[in-house]
Computed example of a mutant assay.
Amino acid sequence: MTKTLVVTNDFPPRPGGIQAFVHNLAVRRPPGSVVVYAPAWKGAAEFDAAQPFPVVRHPTSLMVPEPTVLRRAGEILRSEGCDSVLFGAAAPLGLLAPALRRRGAERLVGLTHGHEAGWAALPGARGLLRRIGDGVDTLTYLGEYTRSRMARAVSPRAASRMARLAPGVDENVFFAGAGGEEVRRRHGLSGRPVAVCVSRLVPRKGQDALIHAWPAVLRSVPDAALLLVGGGPYRRDLERLAASAGVADSVVFTGSVPWEELPAHYDAGDVFAMPCRTRRRGLDVEGLGIVYLEASATGLPVVAGDSGGAPDAVLDGETGVVVEGRSVAAVAGALADLLGDPERARKMGAQGRSWVEREWRWELQASRLDGLLRA
């Protein structure tokens, strides 16, 4: 049995999508086959005690590819008898790969996310990404968008060894009937058509486009409501925008909610919408958009923006609709069509649920990782 050292800056209890991705892969490794090396974080001791594998914490909240981190990773590699290494995010810790190979690692895999595709667009970072690709045995990619971006930056040999590995969805956690009615009652939304967005409130996610589109949606579906789930630095601007657009009475901001309540908040919607758009000349881009898949698992049709790899998480015209994230008219049209046609929305939601069950379950992703670590 191969034993894997996971070297990662991104790991719970620190919140975030990459953190959840890495943790879900780790907990699905066979018993006794994984050990994690991650930075310190508030609440780590309690979290680590509940894990089915050992977690070694670095004394600071950030790990960089420098001698102290290398030395500690090498010590763990030897003392735990690990023969493979998984970098939770290939950039930048994947720069340690050649040195860890010299210390006994036989197989090295680097997960990539949206930010590595950003590195591929920057001259200095591109060179580092090329070194990382040459140092590991396999770089993973989320979907065709991130693969094509990185393949142009790494060496031909590294590009030929890339493999797809995306986050999964727990279909037993995200499902229709997961508690949405209670959330609707809490916010006074019972009986109304609801578009829900679950995401951090930042400009790239496109909540402002939803609010700009909402007057047009209300002209078609007068009792519709927009439920914005999540916190973030953009909230005050969005609240002002809702007031100035005259739709504040039909836009609900929940703020941040505990992870265990997220399935119920998805389930409170009839349609899921996050019209993300690429910013900063391609440096601020959606890597995949796991929220679309969680919404599909819950039985909702999705309205997705066209940023980066977001379309990889939607079967356009089947599980939802991909729109230009900067087009308020396109966003409004897609929302009004789905909110105004519940039967079409339900059909798309059912197709989305089936797609998740076929292609996106965590067990499938864990099996793919197992194959990469054994190759």
Rank of each mutant, 00 (worst) to 15 (best):
S296T: 01
E318D: 04
I18F: 11
S250Q: 11
V302Y: 10
L227A: 15
W214Y: 07
R102C: 07
G191W: 03
G168P: 00
H265G: 12
A166C: 05
G299W: 05
R326H: 10
L5G: 02
A273M: 06
L5Q: 03
V69Q: 03
D208N: 05
L139F: 10
C276A: 15
A334L: 04
L86G: 09
R28E: 11
R240S: 14
P342K: 01
Y234Q: 03
L241C: 00
G231S: 09
V202E: 12
D270L: 03
D249E: 11
V291F: 09
R28S: 08
G32D: 06
A224Q: 00
T146M: 10
R107I: 14
C197V: 07
L201Q: 11
F21K: 08
E318N: 01
G88L: 10
P156Q: 14
R281E: 09
G168R: 08
A99H: 08
G133N: 10
M150E: 06
C82G: 04
R200A: 13
L335G: 03
Q207E: 02
V6E: 04
L96K: 02
A158M: 07
L111S: 07
A195L: 09
Y145T: 08
V22F: 09
R236P: 04
D223T: 13
W119K: 00
F272A: 05
F21I: 10
P193N: 09
L111K: 03
A159Q: 05
D223V: 08
Y234M: 05
R71M: 13
G371F: 05
V252D: 01
R219E: 15
V257Q: 06
D170V: 09
M63Q: 06
A97T: 01
R280T: 14
R161G: 11
R280S: 15
R219N: 15
L226D: 05
G352L: 07
G320D: 04
T140D: 02
R149W: 12
E261F: 15
R14I: 11
G118M: 07
G118A: 14
P67M: 09
G287E: 03
Q51I: 06
L165S: 05
P193R: 07
A26G: 04
E324G: 13
L93Y: 02
K205S: 14
A366R: 01
Y37M: 10
S220D: 14
A304H: 07
T319H: 02
D249W: 02
V221L: 08
R185C: 13
L100E: 00
M150P: 01
A330K: 09
E363V: 12
V196T: 15
R102S: 13
L86D: 09
G32A: 11
G299E: 00
T112S: 07
G269Y: 08
G255F: 10
W355N: 09
W360H: 14
V314C: 03
V173A: 09
A216Y: 05
D170T: 06
D249Q: 04
S61I: 11
V247E: 01
D312W: 08
R219G: 15
V314L: 02
A313F: 05
P275A: 12
P203G: 07
K3E: 03
A297H: 00
R126W: 10
F11N: 01
G317T: 08
E343L: 14
S220Q: 14
E182G: 13
L335F: 11
T146S: 15
T254P: 12
V321P: 03
G246M: 08
D208C: 01
A350Q: 06
V198R: 02
A20P: 00
